[in-house]
Simulated scan of single mutants.
Amino acid sequence: MPKTPREMREAIIRNLQKNTGKTFEEWLAVLKKHGPKDPKEARKWLKEEHGLGHGQAGMISAELVGGPSFAKSPESLVDAQYAGPKEELRPIYEKLLEAAKKLGKDVRVEPCTGYVPLIRKNQFAVIRASTKTRVDLGLALGETEPEGKLEAGKVQGTSERITHRIALQSPKDVNAEVVRWLKRAYAENA
């Protein structure tokens, strides 16, 4: 069973001809020749006019804008998050990433378009450049009572698993307290 978006995409592409009678490339050619150019409209068109499933139609229509974000290189996704006015925040991200990688060999870093999830068996943290002056470290800590820098609340645009956040404005903010909360989220999400 596919576990990551990348594995899901590979499974959909691999099974497309068997399930629909056309390969991924054939569906893409049909879409480019006859379908709408807007990805959302294209997905709807593929579903309504051709009976494709949501995932199948989404994978095909995403090609109109260069493919799904997870198919892009992780480095390019992170570079885009910390470009322009958020460039100054990159050292905070790097310091958090360094701390996360020290937690264990099972830590996976899977950048998305707007944030970077940290995954063990489950997603235990996210790193997001939320504003021009702040990086939020989101943590999956369940019912934990907030204390110190730890606040209850989601990080906008991220997983529902994220229950708490720590706002960081400088690499110096990634201190022992922040690392302690990161370790706890890692331990609780094994």
Rank of each mutant, 00 (worst) to 15 (best):
V107N: 03
N122P: 01
Q17C: 09
A57F: 01
V135P: 00
K37W: 01
P74K: 04
F24C: 07
T144H: 06
K132G: 04
D38W: 09
I162G: 05
I13L: 06
R128W: 12
I127W: 05
A187K: 04
E48C: 04
H54K: 13
Q123I: 10
V178D: 12
E63R: 15
R180I: 15
V78W: 10
G148L: 00
R120Y: 08
A71D: 14
L64D: 03
P2G: 03
A83W: 13
E26N: 04
F70G: 09
G51N: 02
S130M: 12
W45D: 06
E87W: 07
L97E: 00
I60F: 09
P5V: 06
L89F: 05
I119C: 00
A140E: 07
H54P: 11
E110Q: 05
K172R: 13
G153C: 07
I162R: 05
A100V: 02
A57S: 02
A42C: 13
K33V: 15
S61R: 01
E48G: 10
V78I: 14
V135K: 03
I60N: 07
C112L: 09
M59Q: 14
A140Y: 12
K172A: 12
E98Y: 08
A80C: 07
L77C: 07
K32C: 00
P39R: 02
K37F: 01
T4E: 01
V107D: 08
E145Q: 10
A83H: 11
V116C: 02
K22F: 09
L182V: 04
P146S: 13
G148I: 05
N175W: 03
P36N: 15
K95W: 07
G51A: 00
R9Y: 10
E151R: 15
A190H: 10
K149Y: 08
E10V: 03
K22E: 06
K44I: 14
P171F: 00
T113H: 07
K32I: 05
A11G: 04
T4N: 01
T113M: 08
I13A: 04
L103R: 01
K40G: 13
G55K: 01
